[in-house]
Nucleic acid binder design. Structure first.
Lengths: 187, 187
DNA sequence: CTCAATATTGAGCGTACACTCAATATTGGA
DNA sequence: TCCAATATTGAGTGTACGCTCAATATTGAG
């Protein structure tokens, strides 16, 4: 829709405003008025660039779901520690996006199948990554064992992340690192 | 407010309707109309019994937060397995309430300090219970170690519970039980 | 510089929402 | 049985919402 430079800039201002509001007020708390006020834009301008309020929210929301993936560039070489570290960093440093991700996957995912499916898909990818890392960590593990361990580790990380977002004084990194076994059972 | 039998019954019908709608549509998806339609009650009747829509929702919501506490009767005698088992049962058997609890603690807790505080308080109580059980399980643990282990276990359970609600085919019990160490290090 | 394409504005529209109230019916203690 | 207290109804109110549109301004390729 946007072809001129000013249009693209306005689009970015709107998305930035939406991002900020989503993390502060939650998906249902964001109104069109709050977005266009925050972005300093008229209602008509908004609808020149987006088809609906939902469209802008979905754009930010999908960006949040994708952002959880720790180090998308790394391909099968990350250690367990790297992956856990990336997850913790995402939760603590990218708190606004992490908030959106959790609100979404839980708040909406539980009542909206489309969102649930999308969340589960990105979750499955992440699980594979963790399972691979776990097998590299301990080659004795069967594939099944590695998957169960990966699933459990990810669940724990999600739970700890939730804690961290609810309670800013919570030391997520220490707890998260305690999840990784200290000695490797070498064959 | 309600003094006569019919009034008390209507109150119960309204709360039942609210409970069901909350688990299906989420906190923000519940409208006054949906409640009074589901409860078969006029709007005026609703306001004769509740001060506001929020009041009815809060009543159900607090009931949900309290319900997570596994076996509130047991006092310092439950084993780790008992506690984990109770948590899993809550998540799988009481799915509607569990849905409300998670939606709330995450969806709302992240943007509403009052809810966050309440959730964290009930979480702290639960953590104590798990830490005690862990020290009974392995007397070698220091109090600090037990607390960290309790926190991590609870986080993992929460994460697994989320999985279970998002994906009905997920076998939560197996994953949850795998979190409990199989051998006790006796002194 | 010209001008068609794009961008911006804000008053206003329809709708759905939470909530009120005056009229009427029901309850249950005395 | 009587009747004050309580319960029920639903049309109606004000408000906030997402969104439209006609008028006007700005952009940038040729």
């Amino acid at each position: 829709m946007a072809r001129y430079r000013v249009g693209l800039e306005t689009r970015e201002r709107i998305l930035a405003a939406t991002r900020r509001l989503l993390s502060e007020s939650g998906v249902e708390g964001v109104t069109l008025k709050s977005i266009i006020d925050q972005a300093n834009v008229g209602a008509g301008s908004f609808y020149n660039l987006f088809g609906s309020k939902e469209e802008a929210i979905f754009e930010v929301v999908h960006e949040a779901i994708d952002a959880v993936d720790p180090d998308p560039a790394g391909q099968g070489t990350d250690s367990l520690e790297d992956l856990v570290d990336a997850f913790v960093t995402f939760m603590t440093d990218a708190a606004p996006i992490a908030r959106i991700y959790l609100q979404l996957s839980v708040g909406r995912g539980l009542t909206d199948r489309a969102i649930a499916t999308r969340v589960l898909r990105s979750h499955a990818t992440r699980k594979e990554r963790f399972a691979d890392a776990w097998q590299r960590y301990d080659p004795n593990l069967t594939e099944d064992e590695a998957h169960i361990k990966a699933e459990t580790l990810l669940a724990a990380l999600t739970g700890l992340g939730l804690n961290a977002l609810l309670d800013p004084t919570f030391d997520m990194r220490t707890h998260a690192m305690a999840l990784i076994p200290r000695e490797v059972t070498t064959a």
